[in-house]
């Protein structure tokens, strides 16, 4: 009877330990996916957003990127290599164009081709309303590269996959 009690308590402790390890020590894949969740959160905008919240969000977006980030977007003239400051300016101008904005990232497939490099293939859906009342609902497949710098996963490349080549 006592042995049974000890066994049950031991099993419970092991279970709690495993749960704690799962929650407080996430895998690299989870850490990478969390960066996209953070990006979605920082990009989102409500009509009632005040300048203080906006400034915080721009700061938050910039902190997710490395010193330089390469964008490959065939449809628009955004392709190029941008510094963090330039990305901050683009984010500010981009968000100012919308009264309401939401970004959802899903179907994330993460791989680690090299140490401290993560390759992510995902679907991104941007919804919102421009300040002129135009509804926006765009979905694209993206290919992202993240680098681990000082224990943080930072975006270093974004490519919009061109499905139909005219």
């Amino acid at each position: 009877m006592v042995k049974m009690k000890v066994l049950v308590i031991a099993l419970l402790i092991v279970g709690v330990g495993l749960l704690a390890a799962f929650l407080f020590f996430p895998s690299e894949e989870k850490k990478v996916k969390k960066r996209f969740a953070l990006l979605s959160e920082q990009i989102s905008k409500e009509p009632t957003e005040n300048p203080f919240v906006m400034a915080n969000k721009i700061k938050g977006i910039t902190a997710l990127f490395g010193e330089n980030c390469n964008f490959t977007v065939s449809d628009y003239s955004l392709s190029g290599n941008y510094t963090r400051q330039e990305i901050s300016g683009i984010a500010l101008r981009g968000r100012a164009h919308f009264s309401n904005l939401g970004l959802k990232c899903y179907d994330l497939k993460v791989s680690f081709p090299e140490k401290d490099f993560a390759h992510v293939n995902l679907t991104a859906r941007l919804t919102g309303k421009s300040v002129y009342g135009e509804q926006v609902d765009e979905t694209r497949e993206l290919l992202c590269l993240l680098k681990k710098i000082e224990k943080k996963w930072l975006f270093s490349s974004f490519e919009v996959i061109e499905v139909l080549k005219r």
Partner: peptide, 13 residues
């Protein structure tokens, strides 16, 4: 049906 993005977004062409 052309796969556009992920497994849920398709194009019909």
């Amino acid at each position: 049906v052309v796969r556009f993005a992920g497994t849920k977004v398709m194009l019909l062409k």
